[in-house]
Design a protein around this nucleic acid. Structure first.
Length: 581
RNA sequence: GCUCCCGUAGUUCAAUGGAUAGAACAAGAGUUUCCUAAACUUUAGAUACAGGUUCGAUUCCUGUCGGGAGCACCA
């Protein structure tokens, strides 16, 4: 039980005594430490309902509160009840954490299966910075959900069957340089794709040829299929390399092509069940004349009033689309994997698409807790969206290499005596950590302009700041010349820096479940910054190795617990901790 | 035209309807015979505008202004 839950249950029984009926307590971490650790506005909420004086009501709540060994409580302002946890309560709480492999974190997710759909790059095209958000946020949410006990399936729904293959097939047959292909396959595929893509823009005939190549591929043409397979194979190798640097893993790589055989029967089924009908030659899912068009994902407003904006599941030329594949994917995930929830880590611009396919799936009888976990866009210098097809995006590989490079330079400067192998390893851990943390420490909905210095900063609120606090702890334990057993240590807290550190350590278990309430890893990231700040202050103010027992053991225990919390927390963001730096 | 997202210190970002709106960077002032100064301590600085709901609004509602995105055969 967390300290918050503990206070909550005490407050609940006090409220019941006062009101004579079960009453939901309102209690939360205090906005500001000068008020205390936790604050409750239950008295104000209740006073309104009971039409009494909030401060008087707060007093009678206090009279019924039995928390002497846990916290002090007092009434402040218009009727807040502020709780200050006693240092000895923090001491015994953190002592218990020392022996708990889960650091006090509950497992609300047992018996729930979640499919998380993230990253989903297009093959035969390199990943650029625009792909970073889905990949890093999705990976972090996977790790956090697993830690909270959920049964998570990480699925990389790669774009291996789309229109771009029409262009690549056409390019492969007309302008491919086979020498270049054997040297650097992805580079050559990108070259071919870019040339053809550019020429389709002002030549309708080329566009038509590409479409035909795609239709042939989707119909099973052996030649196109063989070329396609080669493209997939080389592209996957390139993707695996990046995922390995990022330390991102998937349980499945079921791309669009996997669902190909399910598409035609799916459309037939929609037609048969009168969930979709023909319009201008295409098969579409329409609104069902809902009373409130603004709530209906299939209705949009145009100049001349509300119109249906159907989800097209089969084109007039017989081809299938994004929506078709996504519906087949939902079918598979529910029928085969028994998904209770499906999370899509995809940008905001696709909001309408997801509203439509979630609604279509529900009508079709395929129901799960669908969540579109949207994120803001990465913008170019011109504050315009960096689009997948706009050409000159910064490659993801370049960003990662630059990050590692910058970290290496700083390591060489700060710690020149490190062996080269270790220094290189640390550069990777620090550089990649910085990139991930830059992404995860801000609200996912915020748009931002891509800037090297922003993404690769190594000072301030960054991963290296967190990693460095852990390095300081490791250094203490390297220099420790006596035995230390964290499971038998006793913690006593005297200085403010010690109390504050313990306070934050106790809070880890409260913070983590909160992350999934609205899918915001930045809550965890910001908590870890606070924890690291508290540790650095503690480190400056409270000597560890030079203290006498029993203080020394108590401080060692705090260090030990801080290190475990930092490593666990950073691990949930997909960030590693070096031993030295 | 309609729908959605956004507007917070000089800059980049925080803030479950709560009290005196938090950090970091940049700027100013300090700290190292002491466990890694990639650190610590400290000064100054902000809610686009106008209404409304509320004991209480950065947060909820309405409007205005400003930025971005989406709206039938791309994904």
């Amino acid at each position: 039980m967390t300290l918050l839950q503990n206070l909550e249950s005490h407050l609940a029984s006090a409220l019941q005594s006062v009101t004579g009926e079960p009453t939901q307590p309102n209690i939360a971490p205090a906005a500001d430490l000068r008020f205390g650790d936790y604050q409750s506005n239950s008295a104000m909420v209740l006073a309104k309902r009971l039409k009494t004086n909030p401060r008087a009501l707060a007093q009678s709540i206090l009279d019924n509160l039995a928390i002497d060994d846990l916290a002090t409580a007092k009434i402040d302002g218009p009727g807040f009840i502020n709780f200050t946890i006693l240092p000895q309560a923090y001491a015994s709480f953190t002592k218990n954490l020392l022996a708990d492999p889960r650091l006090g974190v509950p497992q609300p997710g047992l018996n729930t299966r979640i499919v998380i759909d993230f990253s989903a790059p297009n093959v035969a095209k390199p990943m650029h910075v625009g792909h970073i958000r889905s990949t890093i946020i999705g990976d972090s949410l996977c790790r956090i959900a697993r830690f909270l006990g959920y049964n998570v399936i990480a699925d990389n729904h790669i774009g291996d069957w789309g229109t771009q293959f029409g262009m690549i097939l056409h390019g492969w047959k007309t302008i491919l340089d086979h020498n270049a292909l054997s040297q650097d396959p992805i580079k050559e595929l990108v070259r071919v794709y870019r040339i053809i893509n550019a020429s389709t823009k002002d030549d309708p005939a080329t566009l038509e040829t590409c479409k035909n190549e795609l239709v042939k591929l989707q119909a099973g043409d052996p030649e196109n299929l063989a070329i396609w397979q080669q493209c997939i194979d080389v592209s996957k190798l390139g993707l695996e390399k990046i995922y390995s640097i990022l330390d991102v893993k998937f349980d499945h790589w079921l791309g669009e092509s996997f669902y190909n055989d399910m598409l035609a029967p799916l459309v037939d089924d929609f037609i048969e069940k009168v969930l979709a009908r023909e319009s201008n030659g295409a098969i579409c899912i329409f609104s069902d004349d809902s009373k409130d068009p603004s709530q209906d994902p299939f209705k949009v407003h145009r100049e001349d009033g509300w119109q249906d904006n159907p989800a097209i599941i089969r084109k007039a030329d017989g081809g299938f689309l994004y929506a078709t594949t996504d519906l087949a994917t939902i079918q598979y995930r529910i029928d085969t994997w028994n998904a209770d929830q499906i999370w899509y880590i995809v940008g905001i611009p696709q909001q309408l698409h997801f509203r439509q396919i979630f609604e279509a799936a529900n009508r079709w009888g395929k129901s799960a807790n669908f969540r579109h976990i949207a994120f803001g866009s990465i913008l170019g210098e011109d504050r315009k969206l960096m689009k997948t097809r706009s050409g000159d995006n910064v490659g993801l590989t370049d960003v990662l290499e630059e990050a590692i490079d910058r970290a290496a330079k700083i390591i060489a400067e700060k710690n020149p005596t490190l062996p080269p192998d270790e220094a290189a390893q640390i550069a990777q851990t620090v550089g990649i950590g910085a990139v991930k943390f830059a992404e995860l420490s801000q609200n996912r909905l915020t748009d931002y302009v891509f800037a090297w210095d922003r993404m690769l900063a190594l000072q301030g609120d960054t991963a290296p700041y967190l990693q460095y606090s852990n390095v300081r702890i490791r250094s203490i334990f390297r220099k420790l010349d006596t035995d230390f057993d964290p499971t038998t240590a006793t913690i006593s807290l005297e200085k403010n820096e010690e109390i504050h550190l313990a306070r934050l350590l106790a809070r880890f278990s409260e913070i983590l479940p909160q992350v999934l309430e609205d899918f915001r890893p930045n809550i965890l990231a910001n908590y870890l910054l606070e924890l690291a700040r508290a540790f650095h202050s503690f480190f400056e103010a409270c000597p560890v190795l030079k203290s006498d027992e029993p203080l020394k053991s108590s401080r060692l225990a705090l260090c030990h617990l801080t290190s475990r919390t930092l490593e666990t927390g950073l691990g949930l963001l997909g960030i590693k901790c070096p031993e030295r730096m």
